[in-house]
Simulated scan of single mutants.
Amino acid sequence: MAHRIFATPFADVYPLYLAKVERKGRTKAELDTVIEWLTGFDDAALARHLADETTFEQFFAAAHLNPNAPLITGVICGVRIEELDDPLMRQIRYLDKLVDEVAKGRPMEKVLRSA
């Protein structure tokens, strides 16, 4: 059985991500940077996905995941990301983890897994 989040429009969750990072003094630009780093989308593609109310499943199906995405590890919602079997759920949790790290004030070069 597919998880409910797979059919949820990305545009429904994006404002929650934005509120989370802004509450901690970070910016929309920083949020968009991590989303674009993970997915390979540019500003126009991200805006299109938001306007079209693309589901998470469609959003990640269209993405070109960053080759460093597997470096995103840790626990989200009590589950270790690297132990998730479902590739789509793992990708969604990658995004959740990046948003958490931005909100916690982690330096962007660390969030973006720069060398």
Score class of each variant (00 low, 15 high):
H3M: 01
A115M: 10
D86F: 12
E57C: 00
K24A: 15
G40P: 01
A44Y: 11
L71A: 06
A44I: 06
R48F: 08
T39A: 02
I81Q: 02
E22D: 06
D85R: 07
L65D: 06
I35A: 14
E36A: 03
R106P: 01
I76L: 01
H3E: 01
K20Y: 11
A7M: 05
L46H: 03
C77H: 12
A29I: 07
A62C: 09
Q58W: 02
R48Q: 11
I35M: 14
T55S: 14
D32H: 14
M89G: 06
D52L: 15
N66W: 09
R113T: 03
A19I: 00
L16W: 08
E83F: 01
K24S: 12
V102F: 15
F10E: 00
A103T: 14
Y14T: 05
E57D: 07
F59N: 00
R4C: 08
T55K: 12
L50Y: 13
S114N: 14
R80T: 05
G25W: 15
L112K: 09
E30Y: 14
D85L: 07
M108N: 07
K110R: 12
R26P: 04
G40F: 12
D86V: 04
L84N: 02
L95R: 10
F41V: 01
E101A: 13
G78D: 04
E83Q: 08
M1P: 10
L84H: 04
L95G: 05
M1F: 13
P67M: 10
P70M: 03
K104Q: 09
W37F: 13
I5W: 11
E82R: 08
M108C: 11
A44E: 10
I81M: 03
